[in-house]
Design a protein around this nucleic acid. Structure first.
Lengths: 208, 208
DNA sequence: TTCTGTATCCGTATTTATACGGATAACTAA
DNA sequence: TTAGTTATCCGTATAAATACGGATACAGAA
């Protein structure tokens, strides 16, 4: 019998997931929580369960924070992240902070069950696609703090203020080509294809 | 017996929701779809169901588009939006495009069931909190609502998704020149000078 | 009704952004 | 120290965005 806890801020998702898991005879959903704090409180009381299915984007204490704290307390609970995003940055951060698995919310039931069973045995589970994203990302850089270089950060900031490449180049005392290279590298690092997407993503991730 | 269809791009959510609804004896989930297009295809074949639970943020054809098209075809199917966001703009747009209800993904099972039952009777269902958000929005933002024309709004949305002018033109069946004019007019109306500033301002104002 | 403003549509010319290729200095790990 | 990696820098060619100018259709005001 695998004992499972679900932590996700969307009640309908949480409940639906619990309902799906109930159909498995050897699964037992012992509790669900709507945010990281409540879950962490629970963990201090009991660790008598195997797996926590964890959302990343939650109010207050988010999934990253939960992973970090679980890791620090050397808990035996194995976290599987269930996220909406297949962003390399997210995946890498989760892996680094001790996640045993990473699933997308558009995964199917079978995959979820498979992941839970594998992780329950103490093994890690990342689908091919997720693993590739992570490797691609690792290839570029480690975590998002150091994702962009100093110069790139400057360029991004000026870009978001609406300056053209030429203007940015003038302000940074370099040629327009250099600025364009920086921009191109920023696009690569954030996995977007043009400035519109870049600004959108950067605001989402609060880089600007 | 209330016949229900679920449309959401996240398979786990979709399946979980279906599982929750199955527990109700008088509900029958007859189909689920992972994107707006597939659902709309289905609607052209049969309209023998009462309610569609609809996500807004989906790839390809999103929830707004589905509402618009359903409305246009004078379908008898009643849509209930289930969204992650309680943004006034979203809610108002849904209401305007014929949604019979609007629930947040952190609603609970009871509320979902209540909403479905009420909407199935042909009545509309918006919780107090949602209705308030909508009213607040209507009060402040009646100006910015009419700021952009329909076409311009479409263009802005596609722009923010990272499509190039050419791609947008193809999707809207007009020349690239027309799309560029739209873009130029959007820039003027939002008082910005290029796409980077545009996306920044639009996200700030939650136009996208 | 006519007039006026605005949404919609398109062409040409210019500016800007992006793709591609390549180089050097600084830093890092073995 | 050496080998590998990354940040920084730049050129050329192409694609895309923007400026400018202009036309039609339609709704609402005079």
């Amino acid at each position: 019998m695998i004992k499972i806890v679900v932590t996700d801020d969307h009640k309908l998702f949480r409940m639906g997931l619990a309902e799906l898991l109930k159909k498995q005879e050897d699964f037992n959903v012992i509790a669900t929580f709507e945010d990281g704090d409540l879950f962490l409180d629970f963990v201090t009381e009991t660790q008598d369960f195997d797996i926590v299915l964890l959302d990343i984007n939650m109010p207050n204490t988010d999934g990253f924070e939960v992973l970090r704290k679980l890791n620090k307390t050397k808990s035996t609970v194995k976290p599987i992240v269930i996220s909406m995003f297949d962003d390399g940055n997210y995946i890498a951060k989760c892996a680094k902070n001790g996640a045993f698995g990473y699933l997308l919310k558009n995964a199917d039931e079978e995959e979820l069950i498979k992941a839970i069973k594998i992780v329950a045995q103490g093994k890690k589970y990342f689908t091919q696609a997720i693993a590739e994203k992570m490797i691609d990302f690792m290839a570029i850089d480690s975590t998002s703090k150091n994702l962009l270089s100093k110069k790139e950060t400057e360029v991004l900031l000026l870009l978001s203020k609406g300056f053209t490449t030429k203007e940015i180049a003038a302000q940074l005392f370099v040629s327009t080509r250099t600025t364009e290279t920086h921009r191109a590298n920023i696009l690569k690092k954030l996995e977007v294809k043009n400035t519109a997407q870049l600004i959108k993503k950067a605001t989402e991730q609060k880089l600007i």
